[in-house]
Amino acid sequence: MNTAHSFFQSILGACLLTSVSFLASCGNGDTKEVVTEAPVKEMPYDVVPVTGAQPTRSLSLPGELDSYYQTDIYPRVSSYIKRLHADIGDPVRAGQLLAELEAPELTSALSEASSQLKASQASYSSSRAAYHRLLVTSRTAGAVSPLNLEQAHAKALSDSLLVAAGRAHYEAASQMAGYLRITAPFAGVVTERNLAPGAFVGPGGQTALPIFKIRQLNRLRLRLAVPEAYVGSIHLHDSVGFMVRTFPGETFTGIINRLANSVRPETRSEQIEIDVPNPKNRLRPGMFATVSLPVTAAKSSLFVPRSSVVSTAERTYVIRIVNGRADLVDVQKGDESGGQIQVFGSLKAGDVVLKAGNEEITNEEPLQVELASR
């Protein structure tokens, strides 16, 4: 028992001696090799300048295509349709004969007017010749009395007036008879033909239907209403693009040629017209179009990267850097384009703001910054 206890004490003493020796060795010159961590250098914040530009964007508006010219063809006189020379879908040229009408009373009136004109011309020719003979004879003293000469002159003058009246009557009758031939007022396409030969037609509401409807298709008008807020951005002769559902993915172009120069009170918009060439007649009157209208602000606006704007429940701001310190500037957001956002506030072009806003940065906090590469 005493032997075991002595053995245990000798082992414990050896262990303690070994530990003391190890600690002593650690306390010598080896302490010079202990590595301590250096403080981490703060990374600088990226900054960008505030830029000024005129914001241009595209305003999408609905519009409707219409013929450049269109008209309903009604008869000018009471008559019957004799022949039709055009039908629906036919292209026509200006002055082309579309229909012939018949009205016997107009033909008779023209013949009567022609006969009266010829009779008055013959009478005037005779009286004028008689007057000239008397005038030559009157050169011989006492051959012709002055009264007879005056009577002959008055007769010739009266007959000349009858000729003028007869000619006017004939021209009026000829014009009325000319209404029996209906011609196209302009080049276009017949889009409606409502009556057939034998139908009675006439002015004054005797028939409610036009004989033809003609529309010009090779040139169209695109009408649309521009909201009052964008009226100042619309300029004559600007090019405008638009699309129609009939040809998805295809863009057509036109030129702004007419402005109403008046805002309609009921819609608070201005009517504009865009001329659209349509040489192949692919577009049709009545089609709805989606117009991409470029609008530009009248004055320059300020833009910053979208990431620069910090939005919280209390405010919206950007972090401007002034003399190495943060300056939180309240702004209002506008339009976005290409990663840039329009801002309104106490900023000016050339101010430097953080490229990436941070809610943890406080006002007047010193910051290390560097200009970000674009």
Rank of each mutant, 00 (worst) to 15 (best):
V343N: 02
A225D: 15
F8R: 05
L293F: 03
S114H: 05
P75E: 03
G204W: 08
F8H: 06
F186L: 05
E102S: 13
V331I: 08
S127H: 04
T56Y: 00
L259M: 00
G13H: 08
A225S: 15
S79V: 01
D90N: 15
A113W: 08
R76P: 00
E273Q: 12
G204V: 08
R284Y: 06
L195A: 12
V310E: 05
F247P: 01
P104C: 10
T316L: 00
E370A: 02
L354P: 09
L135W: 02
S6A: 06
Y131T: 00
Y80I: 08
A129D: 02
Y179F: 14
A109F: 01
E150T: 02
S373F: 00
A356I: 03
L161Q: 02
A38M: 03
A156M: 03
G188A: 06
H235G: 13
P197N: 13
A297I: 01
Q121G: 15
G205M: 09
A196E: 15
I81G: 06
A298Y: 10
G178N: 07
S115L: 14
R320P: 08
F212R: 10
L347Q: 03
S10A: 12
A165T: 04
M243H: 04
G13S: 11
T207H: 12
C26H: 06
S111D: 14
R325V: 03
H5V: 13
V318N: 07
T191C: 01
I211R: 15
R139N: 09
G338A: 14
L293R: 07
L224M: 06
V276N: 02
